[in-house]
Design a protein around this nucleic acid. Structure first.
Lengths: 234, 234
DNA sequence: ATAATAGTGTCTCTTAGACAATATTTC
DNA sequence: GAAATATTGTCTAAGAGACACTATTAT
């Protein structure tokens, strides 16, 4: 059995695998992502996505989660995690064959301030994409792909609710859409759309005036997570 | 430099990486996928997706393409290739840490008969999914994910044209949709939709009567590949 | 009172979906 | 002629987008 393995070479390890995450939050109407400053070569001094090496005994998503604990305090703060894809271009890491499995992670606004400590920072996505030469490896491309996936997935699901507090108003949800999409939505049509889809949002008994104006009802995400027909991006 | 690498252990290879492909064709109104019968342990005798080990010097997509040459005769027969995702559950391969990067590949109907030779076969997707216990590794799950991605992507692109001959009629394109989605579409509304989107299809000067009835104009895919608003799945 | 936000209602225009009717072939 | 497919046109109902209006708070 072992001899067969050795003969075929089918499982001889050839790649290091890392799980790297596009970590996104939208506090106060700003689209932020978390990046770390690299301290060692290669790309020393450049920004990199949070991530780490995947152990052979470990699930890919678990490795991604684990590497986010430093950024947001606890794994439990990760409100949503989904895979973006695998990046394995031969020359993406000068040290050798490193395959990166990229994830998209969403956290609620309250997860942001807890990260002032380390060498990582929350930065506006626009700033980072305007200076892709300051980003290590192919992480700028991964960031772009992750954001594209987020923008697309928001059209037909309540994914954006993972970027709000657990109890949120329709206006807060709409402002997340506007921030991530970079476009204004008609507040009245949006309200009609999301509250009119049965099961999508569950109204709580509570209201809030945390944004001034007329008190707004607080909602939670419901059992239905698919929005059909989708919210069209302007 | 080398000492730094050795100290950190960042690039010590821990995984074998394979590129495995959900290879799909739709000849004569049947949704087929290509699978190989495994000859060796583990899962000897079971069906597996075509694929192979990725070399460290090789691009992931190139490795996927390469492993399809046997199935369809030549890499050039692959009309479309896109990534599905990475599968890295610790226990997916009893031999050890094997990470699989899954791809979805589409070929035109004429690529199917060229594969009678080897231990691989084109089989109806429904048959395979009805007998997932005959499928090796987690390849049944990969197949399901790939089909879901295909069905979804067809809504807002001309992806389905990669499953037709290079020159195709609107009816042929519609029958591909119907086969992959497993649902009937109104021929007249479908015709209006795809021919009405400017740039999506380019009319050739030729017509064909290969399906009997009134001669149908032949089209090719145009410069526009995004279909907005999408074709809604019934 | 004024400004700000929340929520409801109303109108129009586009389009999906249903389907009639016509065109052009093979058998 | 009968059957099959292709293509155009017509109607209707649903939904997106624009926007008037009312409701309820903070300042």
């Amino acid at each position: 059995m072992v001899s067969d393995m050795a003969r075929s070479g089918a499982i001889s390890p050839a790649f290091a695998v890392s799980a790297d995450t596009v970590l996104v939050a939208v506090p106060d109407g700003e689209l932020l992502t978390y990046v770390r400053r690299r301290g060692a070569a290669p790309y020393s001094g450049r920004w990199e996505l949070p991530g780490g090496t995947v152990q052979p005994s470990e699930d890919l998503a678990a490795a991604a989660r684990r590497s986010l604990a430093q950024a947001v305090g606890s794994e439990r703060r990760v409100a949503h995690l989904e895979q973006i894809g695998a990046y394995g271009s031969p020359r993406r890491d000068p040290r050798g064959a490193v395959l990166s499995v990229a994830y998209l992670a969403l956290v609620r606004p309250d997860a942001v301030p807890a990260s002032d400590e380390s060498d990582g920072r929350w930065v506006p996505v626009a700033d980072l994409l305007a200076r892709t030469r300051t980003v290590a490896f192919d992480h700028a491309a991964i960031l772009r792909d992750g954001l594209a996936q987020l923008r697309s997935a928001m059209q037909s699901s309540t994914l954006a609710a993972a970027l709000c507090e657990r109890d949120f108003t329709v206006g807060e949800l709409r402002r997340v859409y506007e921030t991530v999409w970079g476009a204004e939505l008609d507040a009245r049509n949006f309200h009609r759309k999301v509250t009119g889809t049965p099961g999508l949002l569950v109204a709580t008994r509570k209201v809030t005036t945390r944004h001034g104006g007329r008190p707004a009802r607080l909602y939670r995400t419901g059992s239905v997570s698919l929005l059909d027909p989708p919210i069209t991006r302007p």
